[in-house]
Simulated scan of single mutants.
Amino acid sequence: MEEKNMSNITMIQLLGLQTPHSITFLIFFILLLIYCMTICGNLLIITLVSYSKSFHSPMYIFLSQLSALDIILATNILPNTLHAVLMKGSIISFSDCITQFFFFCVSEGSECLLLTVMCYDRYVAICKPLQYTVIMNVQLCWTMIITCWVLSVIIVLIPTLTISKLKLCGPYIVDHFFCDLEPILQLSCSDPFIVIFEVTLIIFGSVVIPFFIIIVSYVYIIFIIFKIPSITGRKKVFSTCSSHLTVVCIYYGSIVCVYLVPRRGQSWNITKFLSLLYTVVTPLINPMIYSLRNKDLKKAAAKIINHCQHLHFRK
């Protein structure tokens, strides 16, 4: 095992995905295509919600914020990953690494909180339909959104500042494609107890508790759905929350695999693959899940595409 260099390091080399040379360009173009599709798909949802009055409801406003978070996450991770794939590694400063870690945690934490808020929206819509417009007004909607953003920034800032004060002893090589917590702590010769304690509290408050709230909410939702006498009525009601439930399962499932499943005997290649699921794949499939399952979004998107084609042919 390589011994740690006791001088404080300022530069870090990310090894990236370490793909075979024969498929380097293939992996690069696949990731580039994913990044472009992620940006376009999420921007399309934000545009539709912003400019169409029919989408100025809490459900679609929350969805636009989810798309904004997906754009931030993908932009924070993928450009440097693409560079690392081509160059077989990427050298970044410790400050840039901390910045990437901060925005990664903010986007992930905000998404956990936002998915919880979206679950509450579905709970009110299904369990208290007559009071929905009174409870879920636009003012409450934006209050929840701003709270998610601000709370996420504040709680992530605490461990980020603590990590920035750690003394890094090397080796400066990190076997990952982005600056996650564990690779950063592996570089430290300081006692990481405080950082681990802070992160544990944050994970419990921003991931575990929201997930528990989502589970309890869906227990109530499913109970209400089964009380509906007709099968058609059950399917219609369940379809209003099926997209959200699918996203929650994919998102939390990948997080559990990466951070909660014991890694004994698990190679870093498997860890990096699982990390790709929620940092690269999830931001791509979120807009697909919501748009493919929502007739109104599909109709609005088709109108925009037809309008653009019409303008193109007129030129």
Rank of each mutant, 00 (worst) to 15 (best):
E2V: 07
K4D: 05
S7E: 11
M11K: 13
Q13N: 11
Q13K: 13
L17F: 08
Q18G: 07
T19Y: 04
P20Q: 09
H21S: 14
S22D: 15
I23C: 10
T24K: 12
I30M: 09
T38M: 07
L43A: 08
L63W: 08
I71M: 00
I72R: 00
T75I: 10
I77M: 00
L78K: 11
P79F: 06
T81G: 11
V85H: 03
G89W: 00
I91H: 12
C97I: 07
C97F: 06
F103T: 04
F103K: 03
S107N: 02
E108P: 15
E108Y: 10
L114W: 01
V117Y: 12
Y120W: 07
Q131M: 06
M136P: 15
Q139W: 14
S152G: 08
L157V: 13
L157I: 13
P159H: 05
L161Y: 06
S164P: 05
G170T: 03
F178T: 01
L185M: 11
Q186C: 09
C189Y: 05
D191K: 15
I194A: 09
I194R: 11
V195R: 04
F197L: 11
V199L: 11
V207K: 06
V208M: 00
F212D: 03
I213P: 00
I214H: 01
Y218K: 01
P229A: 05
G233R: 01
R234W: 12
K235W: 13
K236G: 05
S239I: 06
S242G: 11
S243Y: 01
V247R: 11
I255L: 12
V256T: 04
C257A: 08
C257R: 02
V258R: 04
L260I: 10
W268T: 13
I270T: 13
S275F: 06
S275A: 08
S275V: 05
L276W: 05
V281T: 05
P283A: 03
L284W: 01
I289L: 02
L297M: 06
K303C: 12
N306D: 08
N306K: 09
L311M: 06
F313L: 10
F313P: 14
